[in-house]
């Protein structure tokens, strides 16, 4: 027979465990949350490109290379000396369209503001020489307006601005270092169209937000 004492001890242990696990989960969640500032989510992301700062700037000013690099996902139009207009569609995000205004703030800095798109966002990019002859650090700060629920849905669907930023940085690095962005979708396989569709969804999850 189990005594009342043992029952109470078990219940107590279970409660302590539940509270402990709950707190650990909450702490982990907090650690993974982006900062919040006046209703904006703020993240900082960086990537190192194995090219000198001048070459990275050169890429942005070499119209032909830039257009070729961006061909599949964005168009750029120069408004005046320091301002550009960008229309981008997210090829892995179901073709959502974004319009943004890009401003050159200084020799190694630019900022952007989304003028039309699903989420209000703005950000800035700074180029710094990387130590040990490692090229250039592209450091970006991104701010976007969203709530916790919307952010959760975005994360689940792979449409979160932070994920997009990470993907964009990886893409830019690849364009600068190799002149192309690799894609293995729809390479030969023994899949039928339905299996291929399912595999595409998995590929998307393996692509979005990934860093080298």
């Amino acid at each position: 027979m189990t005594s009342n004492g043992a029952r109470w001890a078990l219940a107590g242990a279970a409660t302590v465990t539940a509270v402990g696990v709950g707190r650990a989960v909450a702490r982990r969640r907090r650690r993974h949350q982006p900062e919040r500032e006046d209703g904006w989510y703020v993240v900082h992301r960086g990537i190192t490109v194995d090219r000198p700062v001048d070459a990275v700037i050169g890429f942005w000013t070499d119209r032909e290379r830039l257009d070729r690099g961006l061909a599949e996902w964005a168009t750029l139009e120069q408004v005046d000396d320091n301002r550009w207009r960008c229309v981008a569609s997210d090829p892995v995000g179901g073709g959502t369209e974004w319009r943004a205004e890009i401003t050159v703030d200084g020799p190694r800095r630019l900022s952007w503001r989304v003028t039309a798109g699903p989420v209000a966002q703005r950000g800035r990019v700074e180029l710094l020489p990387a130590p040990q002859d490692r090229g250039t650090e592209i450091r970006a700060e991104l701010r976007w307006r969203s709530g916790p629920v919307r952010r959760m849905l975005g994360l689940a669907g792979g449409h979160e601005p932070d994920l997009a930023l990470r993907s964009a940085l990886r893409r830019i690095k690849s364009l600068l270092e190799t002149g192309q962005v690799l894609d293995t979708r729809h390479d030969p396989s023994g899949r039928d169209p339905k299996q291929e569709q399912a595999t595409d969804r998995i590929r998307e999850q393996l692509m979005v937000g990934g860093r080298p």
Partner: peptide
């Protein structure tokens, strides 16, 4: 890829750009 720091330093199996699905 031949164009990243790892390729430049002959550490080819650590290439930064050759896995398009890095997640």
């Amino acid at each position: 890829c031949g164009g990243c720091w790892y390729c430049r330093t002959e550490q080819y199996s650590l290439c930064d750009n050759s896995n398009p699905q890095p997640v």
